[in-house]
Design a protein around this nucleic acid. Structure first.
Length: 414
RNA sequence: GGAGAGGUUCCCGAGUGGCCAAAGGGAGCAGACUGUAAAUCUGCCGGCGCAGCCUUCGGAGGUUCGAAUCCUCCCCUCUCCA
């Protein structure tokens, strides 16, 4: 196996990396693999605690991909076992325990999402149940012996929870050790993670040394802010763009990020080259010079480029183009989208709120509110009385609820 | 094992016998505005056959005309002592 020269590799690897421990070790490792022709082993572990992979995960997954493209061995580790304990990172209270079944369900959907980006052929897909499932209690004690309570309490998450009188389960103390042991078991040269993972990542180095192996290099990527613009993108916050989102949603959600985040998103989620990103950043700092909406450096145009490249990466160019057209049509021009789902109704005449409740699957109270608030249009005409009667004749009726939900209604005929 | 504190609607958190479907904040939704699904402002924010009724304040019983609020038992969490 041959690899590109070290400086080229470093450039690829280091893009968007916030911290590396240690850069010099990385060079030494790369040198060695270049000399011996043996690829490095790069690990990224993800616990299947939820079924959606979102762009926050993709920052590290894309990094894994970069290594893969350079010819190294990318290991995607599914934490099927650790998911049942829960990573205490950034938690303010103990996690709910998941059952084995839930975990496997999530894991299955993970794979399909991850391999949109990673080359399945070249990826070493592992799960940590491989070694943890068969550990004896004695093995477990041996692992626990490797650290101390004081070390654990050094961690901010724990210290804070402890001080605030929130519960910390003993198993959560075990978590960093388990993640670290993954690195021992997989003989990792490098482990990737977000900056919030520092403690867990470093645990891997300690354990590797204790097992007489060279410590892994730890590479941390920045956390990416979600749609609310301040909190980190996460399932819990609901501020995320999911890999499985429909192309239009993915595009629209990207368009809704704060302007300040554009450059960061470019850096971490696209392969757009550095110079171009710099030009965009420059333009965003001088908005007054780019007031013409057709100017390619108008903030909205820049954001469209971003949205397009993100959607393209996961859904392909055609879908990206369609998503963009959809955005222009529905959001910018406030027109009805092209593909409106057809919904069958059972009765020839219904009250407006019943129609809304049925189609948009809201409660009836919610439907009434929406109507009163002016969110509902039937055939383009705003309906403001929930008790308005709607007749379903031969023709379809168009229903709009809020800005983004559209339905075509037609009477079900046997 | 002993002593104390606490578990409230999606989340945080107020409420200690009727005025409580339960303050306030966050999230969410809607309207206006906008390059934008941003920001801001305004409104909504348990359900239903909706001026009324039903379900909710860890769980199960009980007291009372009436309970998130009082009593009993149970479950869970935290703190201190051992």
């Amino acid at each position: 196996m041959s690899f590109p020269d070290i400086e080229y590799q470093m450039k690829m690897i280091m893009r968007g990396v916030e911290e590396i421990i240690h850069e010099e070790e990385m060079r030494v490792r790369l040198r060695k693999s270049l000399d011996t022709g043996v690829p490095l082993r790069i690990k990224l572990g993800v616990d299947p605690t939820a079924s959606d992979i979102h762009l926050g995960h993709m920052v590290t997954i894309r990094k894994l991909k970069h290594f893969q493209e350079l010819g190294h061995t990318s290991i995607f580790l599914i934490g099927d076992f650790t998911a049942r304990i829960g990573d205490p990172t950034e938690r303010s209270d103990a996690r709910m325990r998941l059952t084995k079944e839930q975990v496997w369900e999530h894991a299955a959907t993970f794979k399909s999402q991850v391999f949109r980006i990673l080359d399945e052929e070249k990826t070493e897909l592992r799960n940590n149940g491989e070694w943890f499932d068969n550990m004896t209690f004695a093995d477990c004690l041996d692992l626990a012996y490797r650290s101390t309570v004081a070390r654990m309490l050094e961690r901010n998450d724990f210290e804070k929870r402890y001080k605030e009188g929130n519960p910390i389960s003993i198993t959560e103390f075990l978590y960093p050790l388990m993640q670290g042991y993954d690195s021992v078991a997989l003989k990792c040269d490098v482990e990737l993670g977000g900056t919030d993972q520092k403690f867990n990542l470093l645990a891997g180095r300690d354990l590797q040394i204790q097992h007489g192996r060279p410590p892994q290099i730890v590479m941390m990527t920045p956390l990416i802010e979600g749609l609310d613009g301040s909190k980190k993108m996460s399932k819990t916050e609901g501020n995320y763009i999911a890999v499985d989102d429909a192309p239009e949603d993915m595009f629209g959600k990207t368009m809704s990020i704060k302007d300040d985040l554009i450059v960061k998103y470019f850096n971490l989620l696209t392969d757009v080259d550095d110079d171009e990103i710099r030009r965009c950043g420059q333009a965003l700092n001088e908005i007054e010079k780019h007031q013409d909406p057709d100017d390619p450096y108008h903030p909205m145009q820049i954001k469209k480029v971003l949205a397009r490249s993100i959607v393209k990466e996961y859904k392909g160019s055609d879908a990206a183009a369609m998503a963009e057209a959809h955005f222009e049509r529905v959001v910018q021009r406030r027109e009805t989208p092209k593909d409106v789902p057809l919904v069958y109704v059972n009765l020839p005449r219904m009250l407006a709120y019943e129609v809304v409740s049925q189609c948009a699957s809201t409660s009836k109270a919610e439907a009434r509110r929406l109507i009163v608030q002016g969110a509902v249009r039937i055939d383009g005409i705003r309906v403001s009385d929930p008790m308005t009667e709607v007749d379903f004749g031969v023709d379809e009726k168009g229903l709009q609820v809020g800005k983004r939900k559209f339905y075509r209604l037609t009477l079900k005929t046997e």
